[in-house]
Design a protein around this nucleic acid. Structure first.
Length: 483
RNA sequence: GCCGAGGUGGCGGAGUGGCCACGCGACAGCCUGCAGAGCUGUUUUAUAUGGGUUCAAAUCCCAUCCUCGGCUCCA
């Protein structure tokens, strides 16, 4: 039984989607005025794993992620660079896809943009005004927080005790209460704008998520996600805007990921302690970065450092070695058993037992609010067992090995790890040629070793290493891989 | 100030009453012509501090100290 932690109730709750067999989830995406950094990756990878696990559990997942392509930061950055906000957005959306494709993040069902939903937002705001939840002031429109009694229930913040509608001298003079927030911002000279019944301007930040979420997923949706820093005010305001109109819950499960920190401080643009995904992936394999990001539970903080990424690199190498070992044994067994199938041995039974344990432990972990560290631990335990069995003296049948591969493939798919090593034998012609040539050299080296001509043997190995090809001697023979 | 999260071995990171994961690093052994990988073992009483409850506490209760986050820029 899957349980998820709901920020609304601050408890783990059994997960039951509104429509059986179907999950509708929405993730607050980036404002596309700059490159994504590792903090964004933490959130996006976390929800990617959640989405993948839900799919693994056979849910049909509709997953929407927005791009905020109009707001103050978009405007000021576009002005700095002498481009339009549209040009700026196009550039960073493209970069976004490059970054996250690299990190193995599955593309969302749709990526709606704020600027493509202005009409719907205006309609939503009009209805809010009509119902008395919003008011116009100098061409801007604000949400009247005091009118929405549940305000603050997500972030557990008391509504300001000040008298509603009491003028606030420190404010711009437009808002009737400091807690009120903008639904529509009147145009300032030189800014991009859209026509609205109350004048030229642009939407506030929060309204886009309410409108696009409802448009693409309906109401209520099952899961709405984002970083912990979005709880207040962003998500609180989304609830207010949406529920003020619909009169029913907007979201059933609110999920928030913890921060990526640097020296225990939140990685953020304003602190300047950020590294872009491009910078990190220039230094580390994207799969290493991904493993690093899922090595702690998504709600826990995770501290960034080179040492921690190096650790993930070592750990990933261990996983890869085990997968490669399995791949070789599987291919050999399939070939060997082409004509006469082998009988399962005790070792087969042991491996089956291990698979069963892995399967149970893994699912129990992921069912418990997506506990990836425990899922990885169960995988590690299994891989140790598998290494022992495969390097042992007993041969395993092709059937057992293929089953092992199938299970590891499915579990790796959820975490987004080692998938590229799970395929069959190399298919590209060049690859096949290289494979043939290297095997030829391996044979020659084997001859040399047999003749105790270690000088030649070592020379072959060393020269291949210079070409980026590593030879490793196994009990069953020599294998090769790329450095 | 208000609200919230958390302090676990050399390091990362699980664990909400007993059996104390998993990984990284280090050391030793096995295997090996050598190397790598792999396997095994070790890394002495790891659970911020002080009390309390209990046959039994990292886990529950009380107090204290410390760290981090949110409070309308933020994944």
């Amino acid at each position: 039984m899957l349980e998820v932690y709901n920020t609304l109730t601050r408890k783990k709750e059994p997960f039951k989607p509104l429509h059986e067999g179907e999950v509708r989830m929405y993730l607050c995406g980036p404002t596309v005025y700059d490159s994504s950094h590792l903090g964004h990756a933490r959130s996006i990878v976390a929800f990617d794993v959640i989405r993948r696990y839900l799919e693994y559990k056979s849910f049909d997942v509709r997953f929407i992620q927005n791009f905020t392509d109009i707001d103050d930061k978009m405007i000021s950055r576009a002005n700095e660079q002498g481009v339009t906000t549209t040009e700026l957005a196009t550039k960073y959306i493209q970069e976004y896809f490059e970054d996250f494709d690299k990190l193995g993040v599955k593309r969302a069902t749709a990526f709606p943009k704020a600027t493509e939903h202005i009409e719907e937002m205006i309609a939503h705001i009009q209805k809010l005004i009509k119902k008395g939840y919003a008011y116009e002031a100098n061409g801007s429109v604000y949400f009247r927080v005091s009118k929405f009694k549940k305000y603050g229930s997500l972030s557990r913040q008391e509504q300001d005790a000040k008298e509603p509608d009491e003028p606030e001298p420190s404010e711009s003079g437009e808002k009737k209460h400091p807690d009120d927030f903008a639904l529509w911002k009147a145009m300032k000279p030189g800014e991009p704008f859209w026509e609205a019944p109350w004048g030229k301007g642009r939407p506030g930040w929060h309204i886009e998520c309410s409108v696009m979420s409802a448009k693409y997923l309906g109401e209520p949706i099952d899961i709405h996600g984002g970083g912990l820093d979005l709880v207040f005010p962003h998500h609180e305001n989304e609830i207010a805007q949406s529920e003020a109109l619909s009169g029913r819950p907007f979201v059933r499960y609110w999920m928030h990921n913890g921060f990526l920190t640097v020296n225990k401080e939140k990685m953020s643009k304003s602190l300047g302690n950020f590294f872009t995904i491009q910078e990190i992936t220039a230094k580390y394999d994207p799969e290493v970065v991904r493993l690093f990001l899922i090595s702690s539970q998504y709600r826990s903080p995770i501290d960034f450092s080179d040492a921690h990424l190096d650790e993930a690199k070592s750990r990933l190498a261990r996983i890869h070695n085990a997968i490669d070992l399995l791949q070789r044994h599987t291919q050999e067994a399939v070939l060997a058993e082409a004509d006469n199938p082998a009988k399962p041995s005790n070792a087969d039974a042991e491996l089956w037992e291990g698979l069963k344990t892995l399967h149970t432990e893994y699912e129990t972990a992921m069912d418990d609010d997506f506990n990836t560290p425990i899922a990885l631990a169960s995988l590690s335990k299994f891989l140790s067992l598998m290494n022992t069995i495969l390097t042992g003296t007993q041969t395993i049948t092709a059937g057992t090995l293929l089953k092992t591969r199938e299970v590891l493939d499915a579990l790796g798919e959820v975490l987004g790890l080692y998938r590229d090593r799970m395929g069959g034998p190399a298919q590209i012609t060049d690859e096949a040629t290289v494979d043939g040539l290297v095997k030829l050299l391996i044979d020659l080296r084997a001859q040399a070793r047999k003749n105790k001509d270690f000088k030649t043997a070592d020379q072959i190995r060393a020269q291949l290493k210079d070409l980026g090809i590593i030879l490793e001697d196994e009990k069953s023979g020599t294998v090769w891989k790329r450095a």
